[in-house]
Design a protein around this nucleic acid. Structure first.
Length: 293
DNA sequence: ACTATTTCCTGGATGC
DNA sequence: TGCATCCAGGAAATAG
């Protein structure tokens, strides 16, 4: 279940492997669910473009696309003005993005064109290097889209970039349980079920607590916990639960640091009290009834 | 304007 | 062994 740390890990891995490569052709499967943009728009936006970079925005993977401009047709002014971007006989200009959301079970991998095509492969993008980018998603909660002309932006704030004053503003006065608020992507983009539970444990706050009932100090502590948990998870390559692997097929190790998620009935690592599991907003939520108030 | 609930999906686990 | 049922959850849709 890819959340911010997993998506960050995947995006970094892809960036180091496919940046600079050229998209030759695009194949899209017949299942329409994964496509948020019309199939024709996706094909038109991708084909013939150079990959300028791959990055994470919230839980989305953003592939920046650039159009090659041949040097044989330089305009006098642009040649001088854009000389910094001229690279190996071409200049590039970022102008559109390919957006990939992995949902629950999505995988976005780079592999040899000869590699066996996995079941539930919904998109194959052929690269000039002979490799392929593939989107595989059994449960089809993932989504593919393109954004041309305007810069793609997530609905909420980046949890690792938001300043504490803004964080307090986002949450202030809300009646919803803090767990629901952490999962709301319009507030913070990137926190999912695992990291919400882990952040709340580290902050000593029960998931059912109404946001409005939390003191400023508690919210400040939660702010630090969210950043701490996400940063540590990124440094460990994310959490490998069920089928998560990064762009190289390697597993992450943050699941070994989980203190409450998936530990129902097991002793709290601090006080030995059995970890409880309740359902909030249809999501299982894990907490220590003694350490979290 | 908010908040809460339901729905979409498949594979793996569980129960009889 | 086989078959039905349940559960996982991100986010859009729907309901309150």
């Amino acid at each position: 279940m890819p959340e911010l740390p997993e998506v960050e890990t995947i995006a970094r891995g892809l960036a180091s492997r496919v940046t600079g490569d050229l998209i030759e052709s695009v194949w899209l499967g017949s299942k329409p669910e994964p496509l948020k943009s019309p199939a024709a728009a996706i094909v038109d936006t991708l084909e013939g473009k150079r990959i300028a970079g791959v990055r994470r925005v919230g839980k989305h993977i953003v592939v920046d696309l650039a159009t090659d401009r041949r040097r044989s047709r330089p305009s006098r002014s642009s040649r001088k003005r854009h000389s910094a971007f001229v690279d190996q006989g071409r200049s590039t200009q970022t102008e559109s993005q390919w957006i990939v959301h992995l949902g629950m079970t999505g995988q976005f991998v780079v592999c040899s064109a000869a590699a066996e095509i996995a079941k539930h492969t919904h998109a194959i993008v052929k690269l000039a290097s002979g490799r392929e980018l593939r989107f595989v998603d059994p449960r089809r909660f993932g989504r593919l889209s393109v954004s041309a002309g305007r810069e793609f932006a997530a609905a909420g704030s980046e949890p690792l970039e938001v300043v504490v004053e803004r964080f307090l503003d986002l949450f202030r006065g809300r009646k919803t349980p803090i767990k629901s608020a952490l999962l709301n992507q319009r507030l913070l983009s990137g926190v999912g079920n695992i990291y919400a539970d882990e952040s709340l444990f580290r902050a000593g706050i029960r998931p059912r607590r109404r946001v409005a009932s939390l003191s400023r100090d508690q919210l400040r502590r939660l702010y630090r916990s969210v950043q701490q948990v996400l940063n540590q998870a990124i440094s460990l390559g994310g959490s490998s639960i069920s089928d998560y692997v990064d762009a190289d097929g390697a597993e992450g190790f943050f699941q070994l640091q989980h203190r409450v998620y998936g530990r129902e009935g097991e002793p709290c690592l601090v006080c030995r009290t059995p970890v409880k599991r309740v359902v909030i907003a249809g999501r299982s939520s894990h907490y220590c009834p003694k350490c979290q108030k």
